[in-house]
Design a protein around this nucleic acid. Sequence first.
DNA 1: ACCTTTCTGTGGTCTGACCACATGCGGCGA
DNA 2: TCGCCGCATGTGGTCAGACCACAGAAAGGT
Lengths: 255, 255
Amino acid sequence: MSDASAEDVWRPVTRVRAYQHVVDQVEEQILAGTLKVGDRLPGERDLATRMQVSRAAVREAMRTLEAHGVVRPAVGSGADAGTVVSAMPSEALTRLLRVHVALANFPVADVVDARCMLERSSATLAAGRATPAALSAVAAPLAAMEATEALDRSRAGDGHPDGRQAYNDLDTAFHIAIAEAGGNRLVADITIAIREAMRRPILEGLERLGEEWPAVRRRLSQEHRGVFEAIAVGDGVRAADLVEAHIRSAHARLS
Amino acid sequence: MSDASAEDVWRPVTRVRAYQHVVDQVEEQILAGTLKVGDRLPGERDLATRMQVSRAAVREAMRTLEAHGVVRPAVGSGADAGTVVSAMPSEALTRLLRVHVALANFPVADVVDARCMLERSSATLAAGRATPAALSAVAAPLAAMEATEALDRSRAGDGHPDGRQAYNDLDTAFHIAIAEAGGNRLVADITIAIREAMRRPILEGLERLGEEWPAVRRRLSQEHRGVFEAIAVGDGVRAADLVEAHIRSAHARLS
DNA sequence: ACCTTTCTGTGGTCTGACCACATGCGGCGA
DNA sequence: TCGCCGCATGTGGTCAGACCACAGAAAGGT
């Protein structure tokens, strides 16, 4: 029984597609330092002839790299035209998580739990090491959210849109600012991606709220204010607990 | 000064590319339930004529969807051929994080911190709710790692490869099993992606170890054993502390 | 010197063809 | 009748060559 079929020595022959070769070579060049962020790739026609593949293969590789957030295409001519190496992991992560959240490949409860864990971490870090600049970046959307309340009151009853979308955007900005104040790029990017992926579902939840909206908004703003002050004072434990309570209660109210 | 140029009302006209339209429509169909996981997409030629775009545009869209882990292409004929809708968020996340870790878009310290946070969470969850099956899935690679040690001792000194790669693979499997035992799909997938992204750097670290390798391996196995037993006993706090200590010391030794 | 026009190179798109592959079906032989 | 072989069919993968819209750069006129 020295039959090797049960062992792992027989790798299936991977028919490596041409565009995958292009992806690999571009990533290799970036890894080797030949291509740095901000550099321009050779033109698609040039790459195609150099690698002896068709331009279509190069373009498919570009789409893959673009989806990974490694490359940004720009038409036209001149310095900043062409395909440019650009590290945008946050955007790419956001796109990826959004589609899979929408596709319900992740249970909502799991997403909420993950958000809590990440934002607890970010809040704790932010309370410990937030710079004044980062702190004011958190304060800005907070103040703007509170301002929408006063604005709304001043013109109540005339049937104007009550800015739930704007409030949602500011809420997103608030949580993103906290994540970035934490100082951990990876945690921040994942946090941003999850919050952005939940943007539309949360907005739909806000729209479902009928007359409760002003009350809910007041409650949310109070919670935001509490989180911010805990961070500003440097109380990491309290900030973490408050942000978790905020996220859980908000999701409970909107579901 | 009612010049609107300073405000945000003027969104730049986004020239939506044809392949992006295709991506959007496919995602829309999936979201609407018309396309479920496991279903086959219409053929590329068919899609092209229906959407009145070229097949090249359809193919570029497929590359984007493939990079997102939403679609899997298969050549040939028959039932399982063609482009199939398939949710593979874990693989897609892994590819994305791997390239950005390799591109050093994330500081190593940040990655280590994020890994600690995620695996602490997974270990705590696993200690609380791991099923016997999940537990044995954790135990299997652990036993295999310990077995390599005995195997190595039995044939020491004949210059054979000492299986650092195999050990690294088993180590990866061990951490992945813990993440999946935690029961949170999103956390598990992110954990898997980060561990897989670190696979090659860790292997290179192992290779750099010279004669220290056997001692390091013994230390790693002991730490793994400790984590496993804490989870098996249900001691979530201890499991979290041990896994964090394990990750931090391992990265310190390998850097 | 300034503005206008033209040139050039970029990504974006399309067309139509051919290839490798895997299945399924039909015909052929036993 | 049964079983096997081989071609027909349809899939994604690849290629070649062409044209378009765009934006900066260069050349030209005022």
